[in-house]
Design a protein around this nucleic acid. Sequence first.
DNA 1: TTGTATGCGTTATCAC
DNA 2: GTGATAACGCATACAA
Lengths: 355, 355
Amino acid sequence: MNNHTFRIKDIAARANVSIGTVDRVLHNRGRVSEEVRQRILAIADELNYKPNLLARALVNNKTYNVAALIPDPAADSYWQAPKAGIEKAEEELKQYGIRVTQYIFDPFHVNSFLEQADKIAASTFSGILVAPIFYRQSLAYFDKWKNDGIPFVLFNTHIPDYEPLMYIGQDSYQSGFLAGKLLHYGCKEKCSFVVAHIEEDILNSSHLLHKEQGFVDYFAKQQLAGVYNVIQADLQSTAQNTIAQQLDQLFAEAPDIKGIFVTNSKASIVAEYLQDRQITQAHLIGYDLMEKNLHYLNLGIIEFLINQNPKGQGYWGIHALADYLIFQKKNNPIKYLPLDIITKENLHYYIESDI
Amino acid sequence: MNNHTFRIKDIAARANVSIGTVDRVLHNRGRVSEEVRQRILAIADELNYKPNLLARALVNNKTYNVAALIPDPAADSYWQAPKAGIEKAEEELKQYGIRVTQYIFDPFHVNSFLEQADKIAASTFSGILVAPIFYRQSLAYFDKWKNDGIPFVLFNTHIPDYEPLMYIGQDSYQSGFLAGKLLHYGCKEKCSFVVAHIEEDILNSSHLLHKEQGFVDYFAKQQLAGVYNVIQADLQSTAQNTIAQQLDQLFAEAPDIKGIFVTNSKASIVAEYLQDRQITQAHLIGYDLMEKNLHYLNLGIIEFLINQNPKGQGYWGIHALADYLIFQKKNNPIKYLPLDIITKENLHYYIESDI
DNA sequence: TTGTATGCGTTATCAC
DNA sequence: GTGATAACGCATACAA
């Protein structure tokens, strides 16, 4: 094997043409005789030519305007992490010409989403990163972007039609399955487990149902459905009925509850309840490294948090766009981030890890 | 804020000097008047100048020969993963001039290590990545490299003196602590747990003792030492005594064993035993995603594997050298990779993840 | 249909 | 002390 990597100049020399011609062949710009074309292609192949990405990025120093369409962290602090990941990626890629404009929408109001998406559609962007939490309302935009040839990357929620450049995420079903395993491992005797959806409009959040389904299936697949009784609970505080009251009722009806699986990032609400009522026999599993959750994780009231690197989702999303736009590098169209199991004892590695 | 990032040229223009002068200041090459020096520094600071790494790497297209000194995967397949990580990094960085030469030593023979390390010392490398599993024998080389000004990165085993460019790893103590938590969570009644060192020269492997200490401390710190009895077991097969026989004896002496923590990657040996003897009441926790371990993990005989991204250790090790050599980018001198908890249900994300 | 010249930002060499 | 200038590999406008 030769020591140095081959350059366009090397190909040109062997083909007895100029670098301009080689370039035209490599970029399919035409205006070159078929005979020469074949010769150059053959040589490039033989030499296993790989363009120097550095040089390419250096010469193409355009600025690429990228839009990020994400929910408001002020409305749901889960979105702080993806936002931070987006900003970290932007910081790294700024010098290569990536510029990110954030479009923040209220995750509780479809209209807010439409409004922001319209703004993006009205502008011209080189690429778009979006957390399409409103399924139906997203489709029209995907359609438009696809027609316009604008690459878009999805994260958090998968919508496989319309061929996004990449999907990054979240495997809701499997995470529910994993939660089943963790509660099962912690309780070997016959008992009840609760799947709790907290303050959610469950009909509009199919991923929460996927989590529930995964959880239920864990026990079903092992013929354990008779041993473990899974109680579905849709907890929403109302004027008449606080969540604590609803939990009181749940425990009254099923005193053998030994585990609670909270399907969103609000496990801390249940933790607060358990602490208040001094209930210690029920293990608690939730999602996401929110500050409140970490508080109860460190107290030992939350046993495990399942985490799918939300900061990384934003980070890799922007990077995927950059790889495509700047480096013309192909990535796998789907990237599942690992389902990390976080407990008090390994927490700090995940908090401190850069990405 | 301005739109484009600032270049040397911009600094030069504002300071009314040429780019050559700015360059001399930025690189401390001297031959520039103090007055101008201060002015340029101030402007660079004000403009928040960040060099364009692409351009820098492009112009410095030397080839950097890097040595990797690692144990033989054929002797201990654990080392396949770091080796794969090293090769992946090399593949990525080849075009920037990084070339890696691997020096493989037999992890069971010090002389093999010395032999390979001598080869490296006899040659001239721009940087070195090493898994210094032989503590005492490594020191002399670190000393030499440090004197020669050759940057070296350590992984897998930390030796903080001699200031390596970076250490990547493994937090043995904390991983033992985590194992304690996991066994504790799986067994709430009074019982015995075994810490098993399998086929190891325990005196020479301080990191295994750190794991044991972390495990013991988990129970001690929660005043649980009276509830859970920790049995230390140093299992080595001899002509007279197979490991199975030693385990038989262990179970005979302590029939209340409800968990076994294997401190190295050989949990599969215990798993095989448990399967053979049809013992189901003892949870098994081990390390590392070796094929044999995965087999028993999938069977449910191994409950959890603790993993500290060994592929990533090799990968980031080479990258750290490249960042230093090519990009002159400063990294944190210590990088702990997360202590991942792997179970059957989240395994495949870790296997498939690129790094 | 083909070749040449210029520039991207940085480094390093040379002449003044 | 300082300022031009060539080079790195690639892309592209333009000349031939």
